[in-house]
């Protein structure tokens, strides 16, 4: 079973994502802070990582950057999820190694589509 790491500090959104992905048949692991997200990503080798940008302790963009930098080509695909949806924000995330960007509020259909597309590679 594919394992997806979800780092989101809003408990309701975290639950929402978790529920939707589990219903779709994915295994999900959640965390609500950036530091543990980074640790899990480095030690647990998730299949993909969904990162909120505004995370406590460590900013989602920094987590993304650290994962990509430390794991290099072995790094999992990363999708940022953020309410900050301007083109500038999207570009910045791309620069730091993010593979996808989902803007809040998103529809569950969109979420699933993006995840599936990332998993396909």
């Amino acid at each position: 079973m594919t394992y997806i790491l979800v780092a989101e500090d809003d408990p309701h959104i975290q639950l929402l994502i978790q529920r939707k992905l589990e219903i779709a048949g994915y295994k999900v692991r959640t965390t609500n802070n950036g530091k543990s997200a980074l640790e899990l990503a480095l030690t647990d080798t998730p299949r993909i990582v969904l990162l909120d940008i505004m995370l406590p302790e460590m900013n989602g963009l920094d987590v993304c950057h650290a994962i990509k930098k430390q794991l290099g080509v072995k790094a999992p695909p990363i999708m940022m999820i953020s309410a900050r949806g301007s083109q500038i924000d999207v570009n910045a995330a791309e620069q730091l190694g993010a593979d996808d960007y989902l803007i809040k509020p998103f529809s569950l259909g969109d979420l699933l589509e993006h995840v599936q597309s990332l998993l396909r590679g």
Binding site: D10, I13, K104, L108, G109
Partner: peptide
């Protein structure tokens, strides 16, 4: 942020 939850759970 709250709208994401409202819309998402309604969808669920």
């Amino acid at each position: 942020t709250p709208l994401t939850s409202i819309r998402g759970f309604t969808d669920l």
